[in-house]
Design a protein around this nucleic acid. Structure first.
Lengths: 201, 201
DNA sequence: GTCTATACAATGATAGAC
DNA sequence: GTCTATCATTGTATAGAC
């Protein structure tokens, strides 16, 4: 620890993390073999135990590393413009962030929607709650200001969540991505028209 | 074969299929062990090989059996009422059908969104295409009749697909189901307001 | 810190008795 | 048709040399 340049140890560690993301995102936790991760990283099996203690330790380190980037998206978001603008801007920025880390997105999907208890516990749910609360607040502000109809704000949040969910799914799909930034903007406009108190021109 | 009542053979077969749905839907294909399926069905391991040839044969038989029910939903749908009514009616009927076969829904989710190639190939995609074509046609009819705005019909289809996708996800989630028939109806109304050519009263 | 070699458990599949 | 017993393979994890 504490050397000026990257020593052999941290190089091995980084290579293991990169290969772990690659293999875990392809096969999930249970079906991925640490033998394959060791081979892919061009190190050996005991290196995993030296650096991370166990298969689960490697997995936890990987999750922590990538997850914080999505957390900070909410914290650093600038609340300016109309509710419609704010919602669109945030969802688009989230979409662009997801597009830059598709392998991790795939891993999250496998963990979330794959067999329960097939992966070690990791608190994804608290992030989801934070996201939904963030979104609901923006929507309720839009209702309060008269920009949106006084329909059920939870329903509206559910709809936007379904959209970002499906957009993430599209990013993960290998063949024929259907969504891009422009399409997502159109989709959000169509949906926000359903929220709007007055008809869009 | 061809006995008047259920003979021991078909009883064993049915028990194996029931246990297979239970275990596969909990653990996915790769992580499920046929030993556990044999135990759960209170038969033995070689029975699986006698009736289905292999682990994959058991899986294929299970998928075929449950999948046809969802196929027939489209074929038997009565096309009456406005575009809005037809879309709502079809999505709700699909939702109710899903709610009656949640274990299979979980299995489909694990297969679709889990690790690729961790399960034997089964053509789910052709069903999805059929579903989307079915939906697009209803929407385009609504545009043609002037009931919906002349916005992008593919975007509208994508939105409805995202909704049924998220509703399925909600059905699969163990704790705190958020959606029910009433909420789904409200959600569809809010979304269809965004499609509508005139403002709803 | 990194390697070779290996212990140990669990899996899919099969042989052969009944 | 159903069982007990067993094989070959693969998985996580570790011991010990360097």
């Amino acid at each position: 620890m504490g050397s000026r340049k990257k020593d052999q140890s941290s190089v091995t560690r980084d290579r293991l993390l990169n290969s772990a993301l690659k293999i875990f995102s392809q096969k999930g936790f249970a079906s991925a073999s640490i033998r394959e991760i060791a081979e892919d990283s061009r190190t050996t099996l005991p290196s995993i135990y030296y650096h991370f203690g166990s298969k689960e330790g490697l997995y936890q380190a990987l999750m922590r590393e990538h997850f914080s980037a999505f957390e900070s998206l909410m914290d650093e978001f600038k609340q300016t413009g109309s509710a419609r603008e704010r919602i669109k801007s945030y969802i688009i920025s989230m979409y662009l962030r997801m597009a830059r880390d598709v392998d991790f997105l795939r891993l999250m999907r496998i963990i979330s929607y794959g067999p329960p208890q097939s992966a070690p516990p990791f608190d994804i749910e608290s992030y989801r709650r934070k996201f939904r609360k963030f979104l609901t607040t923006m929507i309720k502000n839009g209702v309060k200001s008269g920009e949106f109809r006084s329909a059920n704000a939870d329903d509206m949040t559910w709809i936007i969540s379904a959209v970002i969910h499906a957009a993430a799914e599209d990013l993960c799909s290998i063949p024929g991505k259907e969504v891009d930034k422009k399409k997502l903007e159109r989709i959000l406009d169509t949906i926000l028209d359903g929220f709007s108190a007055v008809k869009r021109p």
